[in-house]
Design a protein around this nucleic acid. Structure first.
Lengths: 132, 132
DNA sequence: CTGAATCCGTGGCGATACTG
DNA sequence: CAGTATCGCCACGGATTCAG
């Protein structure tokens, strides 16, 4: 077991866990990733660390509460780091961890899919609505 | 414009739309994709069409209401087809469309990421909780 | 500037019962 | 078998206010 590489351990984990099972912890993790703001925050941090205010401005429409709350959960899950620089006023930077970076790659493809296929989806909706 | 290929149109769409903007339609689409059940349903349909009951059983813990509701929205968005076979009893099959297939590839990587990295996340949580 | 704390409405979602 | 209809809870999330 100690001779396993990280990649081997991940592969073993992938076959052991199954999100189709309701009781599986991955189900809950999947729920968290299925968060309104997670994808956008990860995408916003793609080009390096950002300050709280920058994030708030970049992700239009997010409330202070949800931004802070989502950042906290991301930090707790080991996806972002929070660095406080004691000064006046205080400066706080958020940056993707290595783990966060690997997830960011995945979520970015989701965001890109949405932006690339929105027109197809809207066309399908129009067709569906007129048919009914 | 009519000389553009589908790929060109998608690329153009991707640069025109920006999910960071609150008013952008892709923001709403991203919200829908950020659904508890969408990922699991798409993943469940990966190996070909499935009947309603099969889906219900494969995705443990989903209520009838949410399964039906999510399937309807997926159908409306042109991601799955719903085929009714009139017989007694009725038989209904759900199958990914071409568009749904392209999204499924993306969402499957999310599901796999969760299953592969759940242990890292749980370790980070434990560390975070003891630190506080 | 970066939050924490509180109030509070809305709708997401599960449970249950009923139908073709 | 594959849904629809209805009820009811509570938690998600916005707005606002206070604080270090």
């Amino acid at each position: 077991m100690p001779t396993m590489t990280a990649a081997q351990r991940r592969e073993r984990a992938r076959t052991e866990y199954d999100a189709f099972l309701a009781a599986c912890p991955t189900r809950k993790l999947l729920d968290r990733l299925s968060d309104k703001w997670v994808t956008l925050i990860l995408a916003a941090l793609a080009n390096g660390p950002l300050r709280y205010g920058d994030l708030s401005r970049k992700i239009a429409g997010v409330s202070q509460k949800m931004l802070t709350q989502t950042l906290r959960s991301l930090e707790r899950d080991g996806l972002v780091t929070r660095t406080v620089t004691m000064s006046v006023p205080v400066r706080v930077d958020y940056e993707l961890t290595e783990l966060g970076l690997s997830l960011q790659a995945v979520m970015l493809s989701v965001k890109r899919w949405a932006e690339a296929n929105i027109e197809s989806v809207e066309a399908a909706r129009a067709a569906y609505d007129t048919a009914s």
